[in-house]
């Protein structure tokens, strides 16, 4: 297992270099110029422009710039935002917990509903439950996310007043960031009602964000289960006189989990990159909106650093997925 882990870790190196290179190159390939954007409508004189270019080092050859950036990254220096003048590192970690909290809640909802739905659909193949669940999944998958979010806000916030419209917590509550996770911090603060407020703020965005992964997981679980259910070892399990619950839920599901974990990993990766639409609609202070804003501002260090950190997060998720494969099916560990 240790060797398996090390070999997987080794693949981090080329991926890391690749991501650094791509994020560095892509933002520069975009038309536009950070200095012009910074200057805004007032514009900038050619002398001042030249001065700034020199100050930021953009007059040097591109390879030298990349080398500077790379050595900085390896020393843990991701640079400073042009706009806020704060280190990228600090900005990222101020916002990332919000994204992480939302992603975790969303993926928990997606897994908790998606896997049972897929199993039920597979074991009721062609019957009512199968059709009902799979058409619901298809609707969920194809629905525009912003429209779905607005619909939920209108019903649950607007008409029923069950949930707040936006933000992470009610303005009544104020406490210091400890973990950055509102659910945990609100509990730690000990303020009455703070936790409930955090939960009620989290419900709608989580549901919205969970919708697509939920549909994907349900469909993937169903097809993986159908494949596994025709395997010889399922017949063996039935021949032992095991209950359908044990045959489907243990013998079949465990084997079907490999492709399902793959899509869960992919979904988590997407979620960690920030859900721009969901974060915008619910005014959720996550990294999705931060990244998009910095692309528009041509804030090179933020885009580069943000992409890199998101990529690392996604790589970690992939590593976890790979380790889970080995845990689920010991045969994979041997390869």
């Amino acid at each position: 297992m240790l060797r398996y882990l090390l070999s997987k870790l080794l693949t981090f190196v080329p991926t890391f270099i690749g991501v650094t290179l791509i994020s560095f190159a892509f933002i520069r390939a975009l038309p536009g110029d950070p200095i012009i954007v910074m200057a805004g409508e007032r514009g900038v004189t050619p002398e001042r422009y030249k001065e700034l270019v020199e100050q930021f080092g953009y007059d040097r050859p591109i390879l030298v710039q990349f080398w500077d950036y790379l050595t900085g990254v390896l020393q843990g220096d991701l640079g400073t935002s042009f706009v806020t003048k704060k280190p990228v590192w600090n900005e990222f970690f101020a916002l990332f917990p919000a994204t992480l909290e939302l992603s975790i809640c969303a993926i928990i909802i997606a897994i908790a509903l998606g896997i049972p739905a897929g199993v039920i659909a597979a074991t009721h193949r062609g019957k009512f439950f199968d059709r009902a669940l799979m058409s619901t999944a298809l609707i969920g998958y194809s629905m525009p996310i912003f429209w779905w979010a607005l619909l939920l806000i209108i019903v649950f916030s607007g008409n029923l007043h069950w949930t707040p419209v936006s933000g992470r917590i009610d303005l009544l509550y104020y406490f210091k960031d400890v973990t950055g996770f509102m659910l945990i911090d609100s509990l730690l603060s000990g303020q009455k009602g703070a936790f409930a407020s955090a939960v009620s703020h989290l419900v709608l965005p989580s549901i919205v964000l969970a919708t697509i992964p939920l549909a994907v997981i349900a469909r993937q679980t169903r097809s993986a289960m159908l494949e596994v259910l025709s395997e010889d070892y399922i017949r063996t399990a039935r021949a032992k006189g095991l209950s359908p619950l044990r045959v489907n839920g243990l013998h079949a599901l465990r084997n079907a989990m490999i492709p399902v974990i793959t899509v869960i990993g992919l979904s988590v990766g997407t979620l960690l990159a920030g859900a721009i639409l969901t974060e915008t609609i619910f005014s959720w202070p996550g990294i999705g909106k931060w990244m998009v804003d910095s692309i528009f501002r041509r804030d090179y260090p933020v885009v580069q650093g943000g992409l890199l950190l998101v990529a690392v997060a996604v790589m970690v998720v992939n590593l976890v997925v790979d380790l889970l494969y080995g845990l689920i099916n010991p045969k994979i560990r041997k390869r």
């Binding site: 010889d232 070892y233 063996t236 021949a239 013998h251 084997n255 099916n329 010991p330 045969k331």
Partner: peptide, 15 residues
């Protein structure tokens, strides 16, 4: 009880 033709695929690989 019953045993089958393909012993290799008749055992669950995960357990």
């Amino acid at each position: 009880a019953m045993i089958f033709q393909e012993p290799m695929s008749s055992l669950n690989p995960c357990f």
